[in-house]
C-alpha cells in the first residue's frame, strides 16, 4: 500500500518535470504539444478515492500551469479529466468488473482497452485546452484539428510508456 503511494508521488514529480523541461519544447509540425503528464491521472489505482483524484488533478494541472505560464489552462482541463475518469472506467469495465489488486495498465487489461481508455481521457483534455486557448467558437475547425493531432501525439506516447513499466 505504502509502496503504491510512494510510487505515485515519485511519478507525479517525474512527469511534471518531464513535461515542463522536455515535452513543452517538443512540437509536432512546430505546432502541436503532447500532454504526456496526463499519464499520472491515467495510472492512478482503480480504488483511489474520487475526491482525491479531483484534488490530484487540480494540483497536477496547477503545477504544469505555474511552470508554463499558462495559469488556469491545464488546471481546468485536468480537473475535468479527473472528474470523468470514473465514468470512463465504468463505461469500459469488463463484464466481471476490475479485478482487485490490478491497475489500469496494458499488462492487466490489454492494448485495446488501454488505447480506448487513454484516448478518451486525452481527447477530452485536449478539447478543453484548445477551446480555452482559442476562446472563440468561430475557430471550431482549428480547435478540433489541434485537439485531434495533439491527442494522437499524446496517445502514442502513452502507449509507448507501457513498454517502460516493468513492475507487475
Amino acid at each position: 500500500m505504502i509502496n503504491v503511494f510512494l510510487r505515485n508521488i515519485v511519478r507525479f514529480f517525474f512527469l511534471v518535470l518531464l513535461q515542463v523541461l522536455v515535452l513543452n519544447h517538443v512540437h509536432l509540425f512546430s505546432l502541436y504539444n503532447p500532454f504526456f503528464y496526463l499519464l499520472f491521472i491515467v495510472l492512478l489505482p482503480f480504488e483511489t478515492n474520487k475526491l482525491l483524484v479531483l484534488l490530484l488533478g487540480f494540483v497536477l494541472g496547477l503545477s504544469i500551469d505555474i511552470f508554463s505560464n499558462t495559469l488556469g489552462l491545464h488546471t481546468t482541463a485536468t480537473v475535468f479529466v479527473a472528474f470523468i475518469r470514473p465514468l470512463v472506467l465504468n463505461l469500459l469495465a469488463p463484464r466481471e468488473g476490475y479485478e482487485p489488486g490490478s491497475f489500469p495498465r496494458v499488462h492487466y487489461y490489454g492494448w485495446t482497452w488501454f488505447l480506448r481508455y487513454s484516448f478518451i481521457l486525452t481527447l477530452v483534455h485536449a478539447l478543453i485546452i484548445y477551446m480555452l486557448e482559442f476562446f472563440n467558437i468561430q475557430e471550431l475547425g482549428q480547435i478540433l484539428k489541434h485537439s485531434l493531432i495533439s491527442t494522437l501525439f499524446t496517445t502514442v506516447l502513452l502507449l509507448i510508456s507501457q513498454f517502460f513499466i516493468f513492475r507487475k
Binding site: 496547477l62 511552470f67 505560464n69 480537473v79
Partner: peptide, 28 residues
C-alpha cells in the same frame, strides 16, 4: 460539488491569469 468548486477556481485563475501571473508566485 467538489468538482464544481475546483473547476470554478481553475477557470477564474484562467480568466484572471493576466493579473495573477504578475504576482510572481504563480509564474515561472
Amino acid at each position: 460539488i467538489f468538482f464544481l468548486i475546483l473547476e470554478l477556481i481553475a477557470f477564474s485563475l484562467f480568466l484572471n491569469r493576466h493579473a495573477y501571473q504578475r504576482t510572481r508566485i504563480l509564474n515561472s
